[in-house]
């Protein structure tokens, strides 16, 4: 049974810590305070909370104004409403002027979509923000990592996008492996037959797949690529050179996210056999998170099969 953490609470508890230490930090919501479990935050720091109503473009613009006057606003609501509805505000009024605005997107991916269906399952957010120059893009592996990531983007001046989930987000038992913005984390190192690159709340699946593969004689390394931008080019290329084979695993369209990032880098610096697992460029359905990920080909079995297929291609 997968144990679950809560990335939303991890974010808001870290926000409370941040405001305690830094009076410049502000939380901006778009009627999304319950989404990010912000009740305690409001109780403790009412002056550091701004709710603009259901108006995401306004939220992002307002944050740009706050940041232009020296504050550090964290705009937190559903991932798609930030990255799609307010996309232009993110690009033109936050990223272009390089303002110190942090964007926190909930329900990143279908697993985090709360059975709401496509309107609330966001699997294009990372691709969208990754094409906008000047934004740090972070996709933590679980709730513990969200705490580190929230602190890290607060410390780095400039625009950042942080993906969080539904509040029922699988826990990866790798807390001892340090989080450093822009550096991959090696979550497991069975051997150097193939690399399993993962980003987001599917890392648990990559780890399980690596164990299955190990029993079948294939020794995989599992790398958590939590920072999609700036990408740890050196760390990734070093791994690819060892194996010439990789599977990418993400709860996102295979276009634009982790799979794209790794394939682009590989094409330029270290051609390798790569299979991209994720949403296969289609619209998904409502459903239980774990069943959904299995249904759309991001299951442990799918990862194992993809590893076998990729190695066969490499070795034939």
């Amino acid at each position: 049974m997968t144990s679950l953490g809560n990335t939303r609470i991890a974010f808001i508890e870290t926000m409370i810590e941040l405001v305690e230490q830094d009076p410049k930090a502000v939380l901006v919501c778009a009627d999304s305070v319950l989404v990010v479990k912000g009740q305690d935050f409001i109780r403790k720091y009412p002056d550091h909370f701004i709710d603009v109503g259901i108006a995401e473009q306004n939220a992002v613009d307002c944050a740009a104004g706050l940041a232009a006057c020296g504050l550090i606003p964290f705009v937190a609501t559903y991932a798609g409403f930030i990255t799609m509805r307010a996309c232009e505000q993110v690009r033109t009024f936050v990223a272009y002027p390089g303002l110190n605005v942090k964007l926190v997107g909930a329900n990143g991916g279908i697993g985090a979509g709360e059975r709401e269906g496509v309107t609330h399952q966001f699997f294009e957010d990372l691709g969208i923000v990754r094409t906008i120059p000047g934004i740090t893009v972070v996709v933590p592996a679980d709730a513990d990592q969200v705490r580190h990531a929230t602190r890290a983007i607060h410390q780095v001046k400039g625009p950042a996008y942080l993906r969080i989930g539904s509040g029922r987000d699988p826990v990866v038992d790798c807390e001892e492996i340090p989080f450093e913005l822009g550096r991959i984390r090696i979550l497991a190192e069975h051997g150097k037959d193939i690399i399993l690159f993962t980003a987001g709340f599917v890392a648990n699946r990559a780890l399980l797949a690596a164990e299955v593969l190990s029993k079948e004689g294939i020794k995989a390394t599992v790398a958590d690529v939590h920072t999609l931008k700036p990408l740890d080019r050196k760390g990734i290329v070093t791994l690819l050179k060892k194996t010439n084979a990789a599977v990418t695993i993400e709860d996102h369209n295979i276009i634009g996210g982790l799979g794209s990032a790794i394939a682009e880098l590989s094409a330029e610096e270290c051609p390798a056999y790569i299979k991209r697992l994720g949403i296969q460029d289609l619209y998904t359905r409502s459903g239980n998170p774990e069943s959904l990920l299995d249904y759309y080909g991001i299951g442990v079995k799918d990862i194992v099969t993809a590893a076998h297929t990729t190695l066969k291609r490499r070795d034939s």
Binding site: P23, V26, D47, H48, I50, V52, Q57, N58, D61, C62, A63, A64, G65, L66, A67, A68, C69, G70, L71, P73, E88, Q89, T92, F93, Y96, P97
Partner: peptide, 25 residues
């Protein structure tokens, strides 16, 4: 120049953010 501008419709929200920032600072 206090704010980047040109894509229409955004200045009132940005101005509001500036006013709210003034309150806090």
């Amino acid at each position: 120049i206090d704010s980047t501008a040109g894509s229409l419709g955004n200045g009132v929200s940005i101005g509001l953010g500036m006013v709210l920032a003034g309150r806090l600072t």
